[in-house]
Simulated scan of single mutants.
Amino acid sequence: MENRTVLISGAGVAGPALAYWLNHHGFRVTVLERAPQLREGGYKIDIRGAALTVAERMGILDEVRRHATDLRGSTIVDAEGKEVATMSADFFGMREGEDVEIMRGDLTRILYERTRNDVEYLFDDSIKDLRQDEGGVEVAFERAAPRRFDLVVGADGLHSAVRALAFGPEARFRRDLGCQVAIGTVPNHLNLDRWELTYPMAGKVAIVYRTRRIAEARAMFLYLSGTLDEAFAGAGWEVPRLLDDVRKSRDFYVDTVSQIHCENWANGRVVLLGDAAYAPSLASGQGTSLALVGAYVLAGELNAIDHRQAFAAYQAQMREFVALNQKLAPSQLKGMIQRGRAQLWFQLRMLRLMPKLPGKDKIVARVLEPIRRAANGIALKDY
């Protein structure tokens, strides 16, 4: 059978999800991960709309729901730690109905466990070089001996090595949204129980939360300019301790909040998936959903037709869905970080008054409509 051996680079969400579907369709799959073991860190992520349908078709939706964060609420505090406003976790995360919030590490573990017995996993290695010809792709690894595959998939995230090798430098495709993020696991010294605390400041915000399944907490910092230390110098509340703790974290992560815009997601026998192809950024809240849906579509098309046609069909089906979800990010980011003190004051006042406003349900519905439309912006085929 033609084009049935596939190498997937990346064992996050997109890679194992694709591995599941390719194995389901009878492909022989190898998943490569540069980390020495499965990455179980990261922040909370959302699964919405069409991605819920994909999870259900995979048979993992019930397990995903069992691992939901179960956050009960969110409180905004001031520099002294006093409550400014409190709201439900779903409202703060802009979720509704069947939407699910889960820790990224829990989802990657669910996907890994679902595929580990049927798919070859290679940890602690990465791709050094790719050489294509009419019949396949010769892959040189950093550690393992070279191997040949029919197809190679780059599902290796925002800073994709596969994309750099087969498509060109990252700078050609990355669009920074003018914000940076730092995140890591920290001690739960605030004794949070399925709760989130947010301390907004002009040009930056500090967030800490603890879900039901972890003893420790996660701290996240979003800031518009400077280094992490510069941005939060002199900040009040618990920021100094959280900064100190997060730097010591085993999974400390700092990066730009960015999107990836590629005109073409395939080059010969190499194709990109998830953040490597169309990262919408954490500000959109839709990266996981795009990864799950993209994996389903790509595998289904590869099983039905020649890889050249399959790659074109995958891109044709996903392009508008991706565009809708990427468009969410700038407006979402404006809601997450207020640039000036006047904007911050207005936002906090509105949040404080929201429960008392007449017609608040209609206001919430208007806020959620773009997310709902984007999350359901694709008609899934039945492969």
Results as ranks from 00 to 15, higher is better:
residue 166 A to M: 09
residue 145 A to T: 05
residue 153 V to N: 07
residue 180 Q to V: 01
residue 189 H to V: 06
residue 141 F to D: 15
residue 140 A to H: 13
residue 143 R to Q: 12
residue 177 L to V: 02
residue 198 T to N: 12
residue 164 A to Q: 12
residue 145 A to P: 05
residue 199 Y to P: 11
residue 196 E to N: 08
residue 191 N to F: 12
residue 147 R to D: 09
residue 176 D to L: 09
residue 175 R to E: 04
residue 193 D to R: 06
residue 184 G to C: 08
residue 181 V to N: 02
residue 194 R to M: 08
residue 167 F to C: 04
residue 154 G to E: 15
residue 144 A to W: 02
residue 200 P to H: 14
residue 184 G to I: 13
residue 167 F to V: 12
residue 155 A to G: 12
residue 149 F to T: 12
residue 199 Y to N: 06
residue 190 L to P: 06
residue 195 W to T: 02
residue 172 R to E: 06
residue 172 R to V: 01
residue 173 F to R: 09
residue 189 H to R: 12
residue 150 D to T: 15
residue 191 N to R: 03
residue 162 V to P: 07
residue 199 Y to K: 04
residue 156 D to M: 11
residue 180 Q to H: 14
residue 172 R to A: 10
residue 139 V to W: 02
residue 179 C to R: 03
residue 166 A to I: 11
residue 154 G to Q: 13
residue 143 R to P: 00
residue 150 D to W: 13
residue 146 P to N: 05
residue 160 S to G: 08
residue 147 R to C: 09
residue 199 Y to I: 02
residue 191 N to C: 08
residue 141 F to I: 01
residue 147 R to L: 12
residue 152 V to S: 05
residue 184 G to L: 11
residue 167 F to T: 10
residue 179 C to W: 12
residue 162 V to M: 08
residue 149 F to K: 13
residue 185 T to G: 11
residue 173 F to W: 05
residue 178 G to S: 08
residue 174 R to W: 04
residue 183 I to D: 01
residue 158 L to Y: 09
residue 144 A to R: 14
residue 186 V to D: 03
residue 141 F to N: 10
residue 144 A to E: 04
residue 142 E to M: 10
residue 152 V to M: 04
residue 158 L to I: 06
residue 156 D to H: 07
residue 157 G to C: 10
residue 175 R to M: 02
residue 179 C to L: 15
residue 155 A to L: 10
residue 158 L to R: 15
residue 184 G to E: 14
residue 140 A to I: 00
residue 170 E to H: 07
residue 191 N to K: 05
residue 185 T to C: 08
residue 162 V to W: 05
residue 187 P to Q: 12
residue 142 E to G: 02
residue 153 V to L: 11
residue 171 A to S: 15
residue 177 L to C: 02
residue 172 R to T: 00
residue 196 E to I: 15
residue 158 L to W: 05
residue 153 V to C: 13
residue 179 C to F: 12
residue 196 E to F: 04
residue 173 F to G: 00
residue 172 R to Q: 13
residue 161 A to M: 07
residue 178 G to K: 11
residue 162 V to T: 15
residue 159 H to P: 00
residue 179 C to G: 03
residue 149 F to D: 05
residue 141 F to Q: 10
residue 159 H to T: 04
residue 171 A to G: 12
residue 175 R to W: 03
residue 177 L to A: 04
residue 160 S to L: 10
residue 153 V to W: 06
residue 169 P to L: 07
residue 162 V to E: 13
residue 160 S to Y: 05
residue 146 P to K: 02
residue 185 T to N: 11
residue 154 G to L: 11
residue 163 R to K: 08
residue 158 L to E: 09
residue 156 D to I: 03
residue 188 N to M: 08
